[in-house]
Design a binder for these strands. Sequence first.
DNA 1: AAATGCAAACCGACTGTTCGGTATGGTGAG
DNA 2: CTCACCATACCGAACAGTCGGTTTGCATTT
Lengths: 191, 191
Amino acid sequence: MKSFDVQESVISAAVELFALHGFGSTSVQQVVEAAGVTKGAMYHYFRSKDDLLFAIYEQLLTLQSEHLRAIIASDLSTADKLRAACIDVIETSVDSLQELTVFFQSAHLLSEDRRKDVTQRRRAYNDEFASLIESGRREGIYRSDIPRAVLIAHFFSDVHYLSTWFSPDGPEDKTLVAEQLTDLFIRSIAV
Amino acid sequence: MKSFDVQESVISAAVELFALHGFGSTSVQQVVEAAGVTKGAMYHYFRSKDDLLFAIYEQLLTLQSEHLRAIIASDLSTADKLRAACIDVIETSVDSLQELTVFFQSAHLLSEDRRKDVTQRRRAYNDEFASLIESGRREGIYRSDIPRAVLIAHFFSDVHYLSTWFSPDGPEDKTLVAEQLTDLFIRSIAV
DNA sequence: AAATGCAAACCGACTGTTCGGTATGGTGAG
DNA sequence: CTCACCATACCGAACAGTCGGTTTGCATTT
């Protein structure tokens, strides 16, 4: 019979403010005011401002990692797996546009330990993604004349950049854009 | 016989610190200490912390705009112009990696007026770039089944993302990466 | 009685910015 | 050549306000 979830309210307010003004330029005071709670309440659930930032990352990272693992474990062909993975990460990113913005803007502001944790999980995600491309190369469907790292960066740049230009209220449709960007990517890496 | 340029020193320190810790998390005190000047000296040349951020943008925007205009005014074919424009913006961005980082991380923290100025100049740049693609479409060399806005975003995402993954000390070579990313882009938009 | 959940008051450190004042170097008059 | 004059360059202390974080204490639940 909880009528008001403090944690959720704080995180939600933090995501919005961090995305809008940046982590460093947003004060804890602003966050708790927007969340409709007091500092005492916030510090009861979060150890620090840093902790708040980390919580945002964890949500998104966990979600996307689970999706990717499910796709890789499926019985699709390599080509279809890669396509599905691309479309999924774009769509889930659009669904969490603000979190994405915070993620890419403020990841480096995390404390040493937390940043290592995030970096490692990101790398794990990237490696799983890269394994798809590697499989495709062995099957002879993707080009090998460009370093894998460049290909990966080329794709994730699109995901990253979504938070800059894509707007849910804009003229572009989420599903359509996901297909278009995926098509552009796969066309450019096909042999 | 000026042995020490305060403005240059301040901007240089600001670029480095803003890129490292973010605009909002860097204090004026830190900047002037790194620059080896006093706050008084800094505020003699810059009206505000905001002004400092703006100065960084202006440098990069002006440089890249001039380059693009020169390329468009050249007598190359449309295809070669687009290729040259892509390679140039990637290479100049790599040359100004830290400025690029600051640019994309903190553009939204500018004051209203300043942000409008920056946005307008960025749009002008984008429009000139887009005109190249439009020309190519009329010549029938680039596909028309994907919105121009998506194509533009697709390319600039690579430029944007450079600041995240590219390192001058890393295994990748600037010129090579510029060619590879340009190749990926042009291959994906060719009919 | 003990533990949880939270509000309110509070802490010292630090914020961006201002400002009174000094040092420096060039210009024009005598 | 000299000296008054003045703009520009720069200094560093001080400002009012805000920062992230802590402490205290009181309800409510267990």
